[in-house]
Amino acid sequence: MLFVGLLSSLTSCVDVIQLDLNRTNPAVVIEGRITDQDSMNEVRITQSVDFDHANEFPPITNAQVAVRDLTTGQTDSLHQSFPGVYPITKLTGVPGHRYQLTVTIGEKSYSALATMPPRVELDQVSYTTDNRLNGTSIRTVATYTDPAAPGNYYRFVNYQNGLASRTFFVRSDAFINGNRVVQTIRDDNITIQPGDTMAVDMQCIEKAVFEYFNGLAQLQGDNINQGVSPTNPPGNLSGGALGYFSAHTVARRTVVIP
């Protein structure tokens, strides 16, 4: 799509238009994550809205939510802390353990299984400047060593002065297996400035979660309806809910951009 970018920079234009998009019944959206950290372990349940509405997603406040560590048999029945937010307080993720999420909303129930992959350390976070057609961008760079066994999947999240970017950025070890990896994180939703404190989370995720976020990353790209038809990525939740349930490790490092 870079060619189009170059060519279109000479002749094209972008404007905002209105389209009459269909309305649908609100869908249940479940985001569940259990990590090897003490914080960030929670299940959030919201609903989808029509396209022309504001980005306010109604929380589902009457859900029965439980997470069970299938390896130890321990169950945590969750209690809502904020509307739609159900923190996991009794369990902390352990690599190799298998977890089950169950959510019941009225008559309907949803479930998912997730296994936490082995932890990979994030050795360093640095930055680089990236020359693109539309100027120079500062990018964060993660350095880590991929384990010798194939089948590792990573998700990277940028935090700019403490605020998480909305870019989905995932990588598979398909082409880098077993190597020391220096990964530039392309993130066009934030503009990194000198003086910023940048933190990067590296999550070791399962294949199913990788496929889910890789699908979301494609939906974030430009000119998507010029390419492969955009589709909802397949999540790992049964029962017809949108979203995912992930058990992952988190490694975080920080860099200050001079």
């Binding site: 609903q47 396209f51 870019t167 989905f168 979301l216 909802n232």
Partner: peptide
């Protein structure tokens, strides 16, 4: 294919 709605994943808006 156009979206018929939207939802939130983490802090991003995702189209359905």
């Amino acid at each position: 294919s156009f979206p018929t709605g939207k939802y939130r994943i983490d802090n991003a808006v995702v189209f359905n």
